[in-house]
Amino acid sequence: MKTFLLRKVHITVCGRFKLNDMHILVNTRLLLPGRFTGVEWFTFETLRRLVKWHPDVKFSFLFDRPYHQDFVFGDNVQPIVAHPQSRHPFLWYLWFEYSVPKVIEATKPDLFLSPDGFLSLKATIPQISVIHDLNFVHQPEGLPWLTGWYYRYFFEKFAEKATRIATVSHYSANDIATTYNFDTNRIDVIGNGVGDDFFPTKEIPDLLELDSKPYFLFVGSLNPRKNILGMLKSFELFKLKYNLPHKLVIVGDPMFKLSEMQSFYSAMQFKSDVIFAGRREGSDLNKLYAHATALWFVSFFEGFGIPIIEAFRAGCPVLTSTTTSMPEVAGNAAILQEPENIEGIARDMYNLATDTLLVDQLKSKGTLRAQYYTWDKAAERLWDCINKSL
């Protein structure tokens, strides 16, 4: 391990590094154990494949704090730690505009790949920004004010700076091109995938609160753009109108501006049937999918919607939204409903709870649809994007 100070930027370079023809510097600052959401899974799954598939290419993985060895995917990966830890808008700016350029100066990469979209405006090498969606433009109320302002101000500049932009859906590609007046020929739709953890299983979920009752499942962050309030309203109406024994299991971490949701929840007649299960991953999450009556995923805004594909893989029917990327991802394998239509959503929940023929058809279609989205395909498309950037 070698540590050095370059113009007051502290950089730690670990391990040996052989010289090769291509050198890619990758922003891996979000790879933190136990804290994965869609962006982190995209980063993890695509990079571990590229490292394995291209042993002759050297990758420098750039972290902002001590890293976990599980994220060093091969001998052709050199981990680098550059401070400060970038977990606040002011520190984002310092890291990308001062630390990253110094790492580039010290390591001489051919390309900077940023799976979370942030670029260095000072860097002069080719850069790829993976912009998953523009929720901060269309749903700014779901973010703290300074965070939302930073995203809106700087991502337009990142788009101007990018050699190419990668994204995860055709919806997001069109949105990026329109919002930032960006050439569509320089946007690559990479897609997402699903890990091997998701498959039909007879193992029962480890959730005592279920008490052997059927349930609807939500997976995602508790954020206004996920239509959490609409979910509670539609579940309450479903229980009031149809008198069925179902519960609602909510998997995910709370985020911002949830006071309205909390107020409604406190006044719910059936709040005892709402289970906040926190973060679940791997086999725990798979069992919840596999035994759910359906996945409830009627968001206002998604750039992709990975839970849709996870549910398909686990044999779980899906109720999702008519908006943004969700019809594209779900295809004809899910029930689509307008996120504002609470009565329509409750009716769809009733149909999913009672119509076994509909459920069987959705499961069959979902299994086929899931095959379209794999991490292998996403990694191949990302590699094509890299080659077109050099």
Rank of each mutant, 00 (worst) to 15 (best):
M1R: 04
L6T: 09
R7S: 14
I11T: 10
F17R: 01
K18L: 12
V26H: 02
L31Y: 03
P33K: 03
E40G: 04
R49C: 12
D56Q: 15
V57F: 08
V57H: 02
K58S: 13
S60Q: 02
Q69R: 13
D70S: 14
F71M: 13
G74N: 09
N76F: 05
V77A: 00
Q78M: 14
I80K: 00
R87G: 09
R87S: 11
F90L: 15
F90Y: 10
L91I: 08
Y93N: 09
L94Y: 10
W95T: 00
V100C: 12
K102M: 13
K102G: 03
V103N: 01
E105L: 10
T107R: 04
K108Q: 14
L113D: 08
K122N: 14
T124A: 04
I131V: 12
H132I: 10
H132Q: 13
D133M: 08
L134D: 03
V137W: 04
Q139I: 04
L143W: 10
L146W: 11
L146R: 03
G148M: 09
Y150E: 00
R152N: 11
T167M: 09
S172I: 12
T179W: 12
D183C: 08
V189M: 02
G191Q: 05
G191Y: 08
N192Y: 06
D197A: 15
P205D: 08
E209L: 07
L222E: 01
P224C: 07
R225L: 07
K226R: 13
N227Q: 06
N227A: 05
F238E: 02
Y242F: 14
L248P: 12
V249K: 11
G252E: 07
M255Q: 14
S259W: 07
F264W: 10
M268S: 03
S272N: 15
R280T: 15
R280K: 15
D284P: 08
N286I: 13
Y289P: 07
A290R: 01
A292D: 11
A294L: 03
V298G: 01
G303E: 11
P317N: 11
L319P: 04
T320L: 04
M326N: 02
E328A: 05
E328V: 05
N332Y: 12
Q337C: 15
Q337H: 08
E340T: 15
E343V: 01
G344H: 07
A346H: 02
Y350A: 01
D355P: 06
K363R: 15
S364R: 06
L368R: 10
A370Y: 01
Q371H: 07
L382H: 05
C385K: 00
S389A: 14
S389W: 04
